[in-house]
C-alpha cells in the first residue's frame, strides 16, 4: 500500500476536464513534483486532495483511507497541510498569530477555559504557552524573527510565502502540499526555499508534493516528477527521465520546436 495514492481521479468544470482519470502514487518521505503548462490542472489536483473541490470520480487514498467526501478541516486533521498559489494568509493578523493558527488543531481549550487566559496558572494559558514555544521553533527554523509581530500584509512577498509555509508546518503534517513555493521569489529567496524544502523532508520527515514552474528548482529538489497536460498524465519518473521526455518538451515549448 502506497503512502499516498490517487486512483482514476476526474474533475471537470462544465465541459472542461481539468483532471481526467489521473493516477499516481507518492512514497513516504519523498519529494514529488507535479509539472505542466498553465491550465494543465495542477492546482485542481491539490484542491481535490485538500477537499475544496469534490471530484466526480476516483479515490484519494492517504495511509489507506479514502479522503473523498471529507471536509477540508477533516483532511487537515488527517495530517495533510498545504500552501496556496496566490497566498491565502490571514492578512490582518501578525506573523505570530498566523503560525499560531497552524496549531489550532492541536490546541483543545474550550470557550469556558479560554476565559481564564490572563491567569498564568490557568490551563488555557499553559496550553497557549506550550504551543507558543512550538511556534517559536518554526519562526526560528524559517528565520522569521524580525517579522514576528508585524502584520503579514506589511511583509515583503518572499516573507509572506515563508509565513504561509510556517503556518503549514505548524500543523506538523505527514504530507505537505506546496503550490508554487518559489513563484515570485528572487533568485536568492528561491535558493533558500530549496534548502528549506529539503530540510523539511530530511529533518522533519515530512512527505512533500509540490507544484512548480521553475524547472531548475524541480530538477534540483525532486525525487520523482509527474508531468501532466490537459488533466492527463504525460509521464512519471526521475527528473532526468521526465524533463528529457519529448512529450514534456512539446507540452512546454509547443509543437514545432524542431523547426524553429
Amino acid at each position: 500500500m502506497a503512502f499516498f495514492q490517487i486512483d482514476n481521479l476526474s474533475k471537470s468544470f462544465g465541459g472542461l476536464k481539468a483532471v481526467d482519470q489521473l493516477d499516481f502514487q507518492v512514497q513516504e518521505k519523498e519529494i514529488f513534483s507535479i509539472i505542466g503548462p498553465n491550465g494543465a490542472g495542477k492546482s485542481t489536483i491539490f484542491n481535490c486532495i485538500n477537499g475544496l473541490y469534490k471530484p466526480e470520480q476516483g479515490k484519494i487514498l492517504f495511509k489507506g483511507n479514502n479522503l473523498i467526501g471529507r471536509r477540508p478541516d477533516q483532511i487537515a486533521s488527517a495530517g495533510i497541510a498545504r500552501t496556496f498559489q496566490n497566498l491565502e494568509l490571514f492578512a490582518h493578523m501578525t506573523t505570530l498569530d498566523n503560525i499560531m493558527l497552524g496549531r489550532h488543531l492541536s490546541m483543545k481549550a474550550s470557550i469556558a477555559a479560554v476565559l481564564g487566559l490572563s491567569f498564568k496558572r490557568s490551563k488555557a494559558a499553559k496550553e497557549e504557552l506550550q504551543h507558543r514555544r512550538k511556534v517559536e521553533e518554526i519562526i526560528d527554523f524559517l528565520e522569521l524573527e524580525s517579522a514576528r509581530d508585524q502584520f503579514v500584509s506589511n511583509l515583503p512577498y518572499g516573507k509572506q510565502k515563508l509565513v504561509e509555509l510556517g503556518r503549514a508546518l505548524a500543523l506538523e503534517p505527514d504530507l505537505l502540499l506546496l503550490d508554487e513555493p518559489a513563484a515570485g521569489l528572487t533568485q536568492e529567496e528561491r535558493e533558500d526555499m530549496v534548502f528549506w524544502i529539503k530540510d523539511i523532508r530530511d529533518l522533519l520527515g515530512i512527505t512533500v508534493i509540490l507544484i512548480e514552474h521553475n524547472m531548475q528548482m524541480v530538477q534540483n529538489i525532486s525525487d520523482r516528477i509527474l508531468a501532466i497536460n490537459f488533466g492527463k498524465p504525460i509521464t512519471t519518473g526521475t527528473p532526468e527521465e521526465v524533463l528529457g521526455h519529448p512529450e514534456v518538451i512539446r507540452a512546454y515549448l509547443g509543437e514545432d520546436i524542431t523547426q524553429v
Binding site: L52, P72, D73, A76, S77, R82, F84, E88
Partner: peptide
C-alpha cells in the same frame, strides 16, 4: 479572525 481574513485557508488549517 482567520475566518474573516480567508475562510479557505481557515478550513485548510483545520
Amino acid at each position: 479572525q482567520a475566518i474573516r481574513d480567508s475562510d479557505i485557508a481557515a478550513s485548510a488549517i483545520g
